Computed example of a mutant assay.
Amino acid sequence: MTALLVRRAGLALVQDAGRPGQAAIGVGRSGAADRSSYALANRLVGNAAGAAAVEVTLGGLEVEAVAGTAWVVVTGAPAPLLLDGRPEPAGAVLALRPGARLALGPPLSGLRSYLAVRGGVDVPAVLGSRSRDTLAGLGPEPLAGGVRLAVGHAAAEDIRVDAVPPQEYDARPVLRLVRGPRDGWVRDVGVLTTTAWTVAPDSDRVGLRLTGARLEPAADLPSGGQLPSEGAVRGAIQVPPGGEPVVLGPDHPVTGGYPVVAVVVDADTDRLAQLRPGEQVGFTWD
Rank of each mutant, 00 (worst) to 15 (best):
D122T: 00
D286W: 04
A41K: 01
E62N: 01
S37R: 01
S203K: 11
G139I: 04
T75A: 09
P106W: 09
L108T: 11
Q280E: 13
S203E: 09
V186A: 10
L221F: 13
G224P: 09
G212D: 07
E141T: 13
P217R: 14
E64A: 12
L61N: 04
G190C: 02
G10Q: 10
G184K: 12
V260L: 02
S36V: 14
G190P: 00
A9V: 12
V54D: 06
D16A: 07
T2I: 12
G242R: 12
V178Q: 12
E64P: 00
V117F: 08
E157S: 12
E279A: 09
L104T: 03
V45H: 09
A67M: 06
R130F: 07
L127P: 05
D270P: 02
G137Q: 11
R112G: 02
L13M: 10
A200F: 04
Q280F: 00
S37N: 05
R97W: 03
Y114K: 08
L138C: 01
L111Y: 06
T194W: 02
G207M: 09
T69P: 00
D220H: 14
G256H: 10
G212M: 06
Q238F: 02
M1I: 08
G235Q: 10
A232R: 07
P173L: 10
S109R: 14
A219P: 01
R29P: 01
L149Y: 05
E216A: 15
V281R: 00
G60E: 05
A273W: 03
A273E: 02
I159C: 06
H252Y: 09
P89T: 14
Q274P: 02
L175P: 08
P222Q: 05
